Simulated scan of single mutants.
Amino acid sequence: MKKLFAEFFGTYWLVFGGCGSALFAAGYPDLGIGFAGVALAFGLTVLTMAYAVGHISGGHFNPAVSIGLWAGGRFSAKELASYILSQCAGAILAAGTLFLILSGKPGFAIDNTKAGAFASNGFGAFSPDGYSMGAAFLAEFVLTMFFLLIILGATDKFANGKVAGVAIGLALTLIHLVSIPITNTSVNPARSLSQAVFAGGEPLSQVWLFWVAPIAGALLGGYLYKTLLQKNETE
């Protein structure tokens, strides 16, 4: 249960900190943190929770990461379902907290006819810069694949594990710097689901892509690291 609570709280923090920065601070008049600030916020959520609870659960905070670690031989299949449920529950509760805070502002309403509604992900008309479904899928696939390569490499027993959290947090920051204009950046199905549940409408109908593409990329990343990059004891 401690592992599941760690994943719950870690994913809650990721969504609250990352999506919260996008909702509250990104476009704040004159002093907004912008794309770079949101990217850094997502990276910091993972970095801080990696050191806070990573030693308890492994610090996945993302269904695609759990699945990719399984593909890479680092995680048990029997724990996948419980981890993913905990991650989704934490993400949805965080989105609910954000919704309640935003509801305290006069005139607040989610306009789910526009890209990025409630920090949701999307493609086509719901991509921040109008990228197609194919472009969005490719971006999410490639970025999640490399995210898994970085995670597996940084946490390899031959690597310097003390700085793994820094490498992973900076990787997520870089991923957001690249892809916020394309999809508003997912690489995390739980993060996408949580915002889409509250946005509803088209963002919710498009959430499938932000499950399929990251999971497919994570599976390939895990497989590639295990078969092509992982160092054996005899090497």
Rank of each mutant, 00 (worst) to 15 (best):
L80G: 01
T97H: 14
L170K: 03
A213E: 06
L177R: 06
A171I: 07
S82M: 14
G37Y: 03
F99G: 03
G18Q: 05
F158V: 11
V178G: 10
G104Q: 12
F35Y: 11
L102W: 07
N62R: 06
F118K: 09
A25K: 01
V53A: 05
L47F: 15
A171W: 05
G217M: 11
A115D: 12
K78T: 15
A71M: 03
V163D: 02
G153T: 05
G68S: 08
W208Y: 13
K3P: 07
G165R: 00
K162P: 02
S103I: 13
L152S: 02
Q230A: 14
W70L: 01
L102G: 08
A81R: 08
F16L: 15
G124W: 10
G20A: 12
I180E: 06
T97D: 11
W13F: 15
A50H: 07
P29K: 06
Y131H: 14
A41Q: 04
G32N: 07
I182R: 01
W211M: 07
V38M: 06
K105A: 11
A171L: 12
L69A: 13
S103Q: 13
G37D: 04
A139L: 12
A71R: 03
S21F: 05
G72R: 01
K3F: 07
A159M: 06
T144N: 02
S186A: 15
Y225L: 02
R74Y: 08
Y12K: 04
F99V: 08
G107S: 12
P214Q: 13
N188H: 08
E7H: 07
N188C: 07
G222L: 01
M133W: 14
L229G: 05
S82K: 14
K105G: 09
V187P: 05
E233N: 04
G161P: 06
A25R: 04
K114A: 15
F35V: 15
A171F: 10
K3S: 09
A136I: 09
H55P: 03
A199F: 14
E235R: 10
V46K: 04
I92P: 00
V212P: 09
D129A: 14
A77L: 11
L228H: 02
G221R: 00
P214Y: 12
A77V: 11
V142P: 00
M1R: 08
G116L: 10
A22Y: 04
T45A: 15
C88Q: 08
G116T: 08
L174I: 11
M133C: 09
G54C: 07
P106T: 14
G68F: 02
A52G: 05
F126L: 12
I151P: 00
V187D: 07
T234R: 12
H60S: 14
L47G: 09
L172R: 05
L47M: 15
T173Q: 05
A26Y: 09
L170T: 08
A77R: 12
T185Q: 04
S179F: 09
T113Q: 12
